[in-house]
Structure formats: C-alpha cells, structure tokens
Design a protein around this nucleic acid. Structure first.
Lengths: 219, 219, 219, 219
DNA sequence: CATGAATGAGCTTTCATTCAT
DNA sequence: TATGAATGAAAGCTCATTCAT
C-alpha cells in the first residue's frame, strides 16, 4: 500500500516501440514458461527476440527483473478478467460460473503465463518477489472477499461463513483448476482423478464446480 | 499394480545403517527444500551429510535419483496419514476434520518434504517423474473417491455429485492448505487473504473448512 | 564432392585475428600432441592460449570439435606436400624420392601434427571421426593410385601389379616412416631395427627406400 | 638383454590357478581392447572377471601394470608365430607368404590383442613402457634381419640392400597389414584404397604382397 | 544507444586407489 | 588373502553479466 518499488524496467525499455516491447516480452514469457526460470538462457531470449544481450541488460537490471516483468503481464490479464466479471450485476453464483468459464478459456490460451506464475517460488525470496506476489494475490483477495460479502448481503451466501475464508477457499479451487489446465504435472493429476477425456468435459467440470460451490455457500 | 520401476537407490545404500541412511536423506531433503532442485549442490549435500561425493554416486544413480528418493519419503508420510484416518469408522465429516487437522500438523512438521513436492514440476518431464507423480496422486485419488462414494452410500453426501470430481475438489482444497502452511509464497498469500495471525487460528481455519465442506456436500 | 559436413569452428572463431587463431590452434595442437586426446585439459589450453574457457566454447562446439580442427590442419599440410610433388613431370621414382624427402623433413617439423593424427583412433567412432578420416586417407589413396597408373602407362611400373594395392603398400611404408620420425614409440622401434644413429642417416634411409621401391615395381 | 625389470605381477597373482589367471587376463584384454587404456575401468574389469577390485590391486601394482601384462600376452602370441615360421627350411619368399598368411589369420582371431598393442602409445612414456616395447620389437627386428641375411646368403635377396633396413621395411608392411585387419580406423583406410570387399580378398592381398616383396628383393 | 565477444565461477559425475573388516 | 565401500581430485561445459567498440 503506497510503498514504492524499484522499477523493473529501465527508461530505455519504456521508450521502445510497442512492437519491440511486445516482441521481447513474448519471447521472455515463452522461454520462462517452457524452460522454467533456472533453465532459461538470457542469451537465447536475446537471440530469439532479435536483439543483443547487451540491450537486454540496458532494458532490465537482471534476469530476475526481466522475469518479474513477465509476471506483471500475467497479473494484468488476470485483473482484466476479474474486472469484467465481478462488477457485473449477475447473481453470485452466475459470477462464479463466469469465472470458472473464464479460467477454462484463459488457462488454455495463456498457458505460458500461468506456467510462469508457478515459477515464482523458485526465484528465491527477495523482498521484490514478495512485493510482487503481494500485488498478484491482493487483487483476487480483495475482489473475491468483496464478492462474498455482497453475496451475504443479498442473502445468497450463509452469513456464518467468514467472507475472507470463503474467498480463500474459492481462490484455492480456482487456482488449482487453472494449474490443471496449464501445467503438465497438474494435468496428469487431473486425469488421475477424472480420467483421460477431460478436454471435452469442460461443461461437466463447470457444472460440478458450480453445484459444489452453490451448495457449499447457499444460505 | 505390478508396474515395475527402476530402483532409485542402489544396493549399497540399502545396506547402510539406518542412522546413516537417515542422515543422508535428511540432508538431501533439507537442501532440496531450501534451495530447490537446480540450486542444490551435490557436493554440499555430501559435505553436510559427512560423506564423500563419490559415495553419493555409489548410493544413487544421479542427482535426480536422489531427489526422487526424497520425494518418495514424502509419499510415505502422506500414505501413512491417509491410511490412519480414512479406514476409521467415523462419519465422513469427522474424517474430513481429522484430515485437515493432520494436514495442519504435518505441514508444519514436514515443511521441507512438502516444499520438495512442489519442486517436482521443475525437474522436467522424464517418464520417471511422471511415474512417480502418478503414484503420489493415485493414493489420494483412490482414497478420497472411495471416501466420497461411501459417504453417498451412507447418505451423508448428495448423490448427484460425481464422486471423482468431489474427491478432486477436496484434494485441491487440502493441497492448497498444505502449501499455505509450508511454502513461503503460499503462506504470504494465506496472510493476504486472512491476515497476519493465522498461526494461532488453526481452529478457525479448521472449523470454517469443515463447515464449507459439510455444507457443500450434505445430502 | 558435395559431401557436406558440420562446421567444426563457429563463426566467432573465423572472425578472430589470424594471430589469435594461430595462437589457439598451436596451443591446442601442442597439448593434444603431448598429452593425447583424453589427457588434454581444455582449461589448460585456454590458459596457455591466453583466453577464457568460455571463449573456447564460443569458438568450438566441444573438446572433440577443437581436436578435429587440429586434425584438419594436419590434412592441409599433407595435401600441400602431395600437390606439390605428385603433379610434377619427373619420373615415378624421382617423385618417390621427393615424397620420402618431404616426409623426412615435415615429420620433424610437424611432429606434433603427426602425433595428433595417431590419436584419431582413440577418439571413439563418431561418424564425424569416420568422415574426417575418410577425407584424410582419400587424398593419399587417390593421388598414389593415380601415380602408379601413370607409372604403368609410362612403363616404369610392372603392369601385373594392382595399382590400388601398390598405392596401399607405398602409403603403408610412408606412414610408418612418418611415425618413426615423430612418435617416441616408433622412433624407439626404428632404432631397434637400425641402430641409434638414424638422425644423421637420412640419406641412407632415403636411398634404401628408393632402391626397395624401385626394385619392387620396376617393369 | 639381461636387464632386470620390475615384475609386473605380484607373487599373489602367480600363485593363482591358471583358470583364474586366464579369466583375469582375458577380461583385461577384452576391456583394454574395446575401450582403450584411458576409458577402461578397473572396477569393471574386476566385476566382469568375478573378483574384487581389492584383489586386482593385490595382483598388480596399478592399472598400468595390468595393462602391460596384457601386452606381454600379445608378445607371446607373436613370438610363437615367428618361431614356427622363421626357422623352417623353406625359401625366403615362401616364409614371407607364410608370415602374411599367419598375420591374416591371427589378426582376425586376436583382434583384441593387436588393438591393445596400438594403445601402448597412450600409456605415457615411462621407462617401463620403453623397456616393454623394446622387447616386443626386438623379437621381430632380430628374426627378420636374420631372415634377410640368410636370404642374401642363399642368393635370394640382393646383396646391396641393408638387411636391417629391409627387415624394417618388411615389418612396416606387416604391421600395417595387421592394423588393417584389426583396427576400425585402419580397416576403413584399407577399404578406401582397395574397396569394400576385402574380407573375401585375402588371396589377392597375399599374392600382391608376395609379388611386391619378391620383386623388391630378388637378386 | 546498440552490440556481442569475453569472462570465469560453478557443478555433476567418474574412477584409480586405499584400507578396515 | 579377499573383499568392496569409501574417497576426492579432476575436468568438460554453461551462462549471467560486463564493457570496449
């Protein structure tokens, strides 16, 4: 809240054409997502992005900084989704349905961004990482909690459940789902529980989750 | 059932005194958990465990093998917990309560094992990793699904929910909780949702989760 | 003819100053020749050549690649000698005399290159090694065979000897001589047969070999 | 001659049963021949020979000593062949024919021993190696030189050729042939000169070599 | 500003040899 | 005498980062 944070990109990067900025970030995302943080090679990112290593270090302070910038991209996507769905004037349970649908869609489309997100832990425990993760999680925390409170006001959700706790459990379910759609490991796990044909069972998963949530929370 | 798997430890390791075996595994677990797979240095494990590098390679085929052995340790712990709680003759919701309690307890005690577990994804996609992860997940998948089916038979759980799907959602909640108690990152996230004083709020978390589950599933 | 082969040097090496290129190759040749392939240490080559290990790997793909480049150097020397002598318009036997002289001279001057050549066999049986050795031997095979055929046309050489076989036997004699001048082991063997004072008996060796060949082949 | 030499085998080895001795030497020969000196692993020799590493070091002073013993084995084989053929009462050229035949036969049968022989150079330049190589070469040097002298006495060989030099050239041809039949590299070279179907052209090679030699030396 | 060559610390794995049992 | 577990030095190769051009 109000803390300032070392800028992750240098001025030189901000001045770049959007096209170039995008090219660099896309390449970085793709590499970090497919190789993981440790196995990603800055020299290769430079090469694939069509710029020099020297330039990378003119634009970003370090490999870690570049990585953190790609994470920020992910946050933007997430924020956009939430801001579209949450403030609408549907019922709580309708919003849940839309959120799950959005996760199913975006997880597949933005697989790489989500994979990167799960790389966050391997980057070590710098304050910067903490700060960044704070921002990422704070968005969902706030919005979901607000959503639940509203649901309690409108009588859709039991009043004896703690709104923050419900928000937390909801987010746990959503994040797990997200991973299941984008990480190799979690996909495998998904299949172990539910069988090999999940790809064409989006509707089944959606319905079951909505039913589960609706039953769990209904006043 | 009958799947064979390359042995991860060589005979020379099996012949070691339990004391020595434990020393080596503890050291390895501790290093892998704190540094992650890539940043763990075999030479340092050897040094800290008081043996030579050469010996490590007499005991385990490779760094990855040693890592996988530490994972197996984690599986054993998990299996033990599940096998204690699931077959008991309590009600479904009582079993859930016990499971959550066990997670709260073991997550704190075995923090490192759980951190290692979340390293599994970064080790790449060797068939071995897949095989191993299969075994890890298959235990929970089977037991939870069975638990739900039984709950449906006894009338504790709604019959129109898919047992496998419920098991999956339960496991998602449990795993997320586990991470929250053992990973720096997830602990931070936990606090963002619920505030800084969770450590002394185990009972609150337990109650809320049980209430959430019980409400979600009640027939 | 049109066979392509993986380039052994990277562009970064080709761009180096001749002075630097030479320095690196000389160092490598010297190390490989004196230590053999397996006992040659890339770190030491780098140090002696006054560059970093990293650079070696920017210039050459691997230790083996660097080794093969040094072999190619040897081939060039050989090719140059053959191309100077074989196409001349002397008699067959005069050419033999010149070849032997050239071997006596170059073997002493290029001792290291020849020692490296005899290391070829120990590098294992990669296709690359096979390909490279093919090129090395093919030069002599072709030129000598052609030389013999010409000698048969001009009536200098018996027509009932197979030209390829004669070329092979000649090359055997030449190679053996070459080794005798450059390898410690073969020098010792030379002395066992002919006594310790060979160094000042070049003319004797030359005369005897020419006489042997001329008698063996004369029509 | 009369120099004593550090014994390569310890008394403990000499006391072993012939069966066991043979087993160990065969294994060592096979490994050294297929892997080369540097890539041969003493621990693997022990394992394949069915004894312990500790024992190997009770029998032989070092890896190098064991290697040198295997070389001695090769010398024995060679000595036996020479002693069968040279003292016979055939003509010089008949003996040459028999020698070449013997090389063709033994090279194929004793491939491994001959491959080991060409590993001698990589073992470094200890006095021991020199001494050993001396013994190996001295046998051929003496016998061939004597053979030539006798040929000159009987009038089969030109008197103006130096007997030691002729012996040397003959040995060069024989050794080259030997390599061609047993080393991958030299076999390839052989084929480059003479085409792919050498295996069934033993008679051709034999005839051509005899003709070459007989013509080269005839009085 | 951009470039990309240069750096060198760092890490996994091997294997000849020893020595306690 | 036989064993085989233990040792630890040694080496090929990678890659984040720098800096001269």
């Amino acid at each position: 809240m109000g803390e300032t944070r070392r800028k992750l990109t240098k001025a030189t990067f901000d001045n770049l054409s959007n096209e170039k900025k995008l090219m660099i970030l896309q390449t970085a995302i793709s590499e970090f997502a497919s190789q993981g943080f440790d196995h990603t090679n800055i020299n290769i990112i430079a090469e694939k992005a069509g710029i020099s290593v020297g330039s990378i270090y003119k634009y970003f302070g370090s490999k870690q900084d570049l990585f953190l910038v790609t994470i920020q991209q992910g946050t933007e996507v997430l924020k956009t989704i939430l801001q579209t769905i949450v403030p609408s004037d549907q019922s709580f349970i309708e919003k849940c349905r839309d959120l799950i649908k959005a996760i199913q869609k975006s997880s597949r489309e933005q697989q790489q961004l989500i994979r990167i997100y799960s790389e966050l832990t391997s980057v070590g425990n710098s304050d910067l990482v903490k700060q960044l993760s704070y921002e990422i999680e704070a968005i969902s925390a706030e919005m979901y909690t607000e959503l639940v409170k509203e649901g309690q006001r409108t009588g859709e959700i039991m009043k004896d459940l703690d709104p923050a706790m419900v928000a937390f459990l909801m987010d746990n379910l959503f994040i797990s789902l997200q991973f299941s759609y984008s990480s190799e490991y979690y996909l495998q796990r998904f299949k172990i529980f539910l069988g090999d044909d999940i790809d064409d069972r989006d509707t089944f998963v959606l319905d079951q989750m909505v039913r589960f949530l609706s039953s769990a929370l209904k006043a």
